[in-house]
C-alpha cells in the first residue's frame, strides 16, 4: 500500500515536471515575438537598429526568465520534491 502511494506520487511528480516544461514554449513564443518584431523594425529603419540592441537583449532576458521559472519548477519536481 505504501509502495503504491509512493509510486503514485512519483508518477505525479514526473507528469508535473513534464507539464511544467510546457511553460518553456511560452518563453519561446515571447522571445521569438521580440526578436521578430525587432527585425521587422530594424528592416524598416536600419539606422535606428544598433541603438536598440540593449533593449532587445533586455526584452529577451525578461521573456526568457519566465520560461526559466517553469524549467526550474520542472527541475524542482524531478529532483527536489
Amino acid at each position: 500500500m505504501e509502495g503504491e502511494v509512493a509510486q503514485l506520487a512519483l508518477m505525479g511528480k514526473y507528469i508535473g515536471a513534464g507539464l511544467a516544461t510546457i511553460g518553456l514554449g511560452g518563453a519561446g513564443i515571447g522571445v521569438g515575438h521580440i526578436a521578430g518584431n525587432f527585425l521587422a523594425g530594424a528592416l524598416r529603419n536600419p539606422s535606428a537598429a544598433p541603438g536598440q540592441m540593449a533593449n532587445l537583449f533586455v526584452g529577451i532576458a525578461f521573456a526568457e526568465a519566465l520560461g526559466i521559472f517553469s524549467f526550474l519548477i520542472a527541475l524542482l519536481l524531478m529532483f527536489a520534491v
Binding site: 532576458a61 525578461f62 526568457e64 526568465a65 526559466i68 521559472f69 524549467f71 526550474l72 527541475l75
Partner: peptide, 13 residues
Amino acid sequence: LSHSIRLGGNLMA
C-alpha cells in the same frame, strides 16, 4: 530572484 535564476537556470539547463 529572476536575475539569479535566469543566469543559473540557463547555465544549468
